[in-house]
């Protein structure tokens, strides 16, 4: 089975294997392989909308190709109706089919947008663990106010427990993105956004900044780890042993521009540091500052 020197059987085998590996690889694709209820619900939404749209997409593609072939100029046996240009019935059909699909998807959209509002706490899963997130050039700082610790480029939490994130930026706009657990939301200086996530099982995931932010952007990823409660307690205890402390004096050095920063623990964090990071952009500069305000949300 050789044609002009190409081994077709071999080529097909290679192509088939490539497709198979590709399919296996895609099964593990972050968006398609969620590990928590929020990301799962978002992915299911994707699948539902995709399936509904296939009802019209597939016929359109097939009809286009079929019409093009059937009514080719050389096929004189096909019917030819040069002046047929109107049909109220067909008009009604072509307006109503997309309209029905859009109405169905619109209902799905409306409901899911409320249900999956990133500001809405996860229900029926127990009390959430609070983490404050600061986007910096080019790394992520995670502050655990209850535990009094902070970590750079690692977000750890107990599996099965909701995590409630408050997110801001100490630099340009970033986007906090954990595809397998929560999707994403922007981080903006002087403002706070929210995101909820929950991991069903212990595991390791990748988090990134998805909003371009300058030279170190490509290396601005972080590790997301869900642990058993015991492991999490051990993790906190380990962080408490770290030499570094984070307060108003040490913070500027930590926040300074740096690339590909390794995971770094801080055993203590000055209370209110996160609010200070936000507040410094709200009341900047001059003398008549009207007292320290608390964090102002991006959404009022």
């Amino acid at each position: 089975m050789k044609l002009r020197g190409i081994n077709w059987r071999g080529a097909m085998l290679v192509a088939g294997m490539a497709l198979l590996t590709g399919a296996c690889d895609l099964k593990r694709a972050a968006v398609l392989d969620p590990k928590g209820p929020i990301a799962l619900a978002e992915r299911d939404l994707l699948f539902d909308a995709f399936s509904v749209m296939m009802i019209v997409i597939v016929p359109v593609i097939i009809l286009t190709l079929w019409f093009a072939w059937r009514y080719r100029a050389s096929n004189t046996s096909a019917q030819y109706a040069p002046n047929w240009a109107n049909s109220v019935k067909i008009d009604a059909f072509v307006w109503s089919i997309p309209a029905i699909i859009v109405i169905a998807l619109g209902v799905l959209l409306w409901r899911s947008t409320y249900k999956l509002d990133p500001y809405r706490p996860i229900e029926n899963a127990g009390p959430a663990i609070e983490v404050q997130v600061v986007a910096q050039d080019w790394k992520w700082l995670f502050i655990y106010p209850e535990q009094g610790i902070a970590v750079v480029n690692q977000l750890a939490f107990p599996a099965g427990r909701p995590v409630s994130l408050r997110i801001t930026s100490d630099t340009v706009m970033n986007s906090f993105y954990v595809p397998q657990l929560a999707g994403q939301i922007y981080a903006m200086a002087g403002m706070q956004t929210r995101l909820q996530l929950l991991a069903d099982q212990p595991g390791k995931f990748v988090g990134r900044n998805s909003q371009y932010s300058g030279g170190g952007y490509s290396q601005q990823h972080f590790e997301v780890v869900s642990l058993t409660q015991g492991d999490f307690d051990a993790w906190v205890a380990k962080a408490k042993q770290a030499p570094g402390r984070l307060d108003a004096q040490t913070y500027p050095a930590q926040a300074a521009k740096s690339r590909a920063v390794p995971i770094t623990y801080y055993s203590a964090v000055e209370p209110g540091l996160y609010d200070q990071i936000i507040a410094k952009y709200r009341h900047s500069g001059h003398a008549h500052t009207q007292g320290q305000g608390s964090a102002v949300p991006a959404r009022r």
Binding site: V31, A39, A41, E42, R43, L45, L46, A49, F50, M53, I57, V60, I61, T64, L65, A68, L105, L108, L109, S112, T113, K115, L116, P118, S175, Y177, P179, A182, G183, Q184, I185, S210, Q211
Partner: peptide
């Protein structure tokens, strides 16, 4: 034109996917 119709409907479909805010949270900026 024929290439357009066949390919464009795929892009339209992914556009509608991105128009669903929670789905967009997963795929925005990717």
């Amino acid at each position: 034109s024929i290439g357009f119709i066949v390919t464009f409907v795929i892009g339209g479909m992914t556009g509608v996917l991105l128009a669903i805010p929670p789905a967009d949270f997963l795929m925005h900026n990717t």
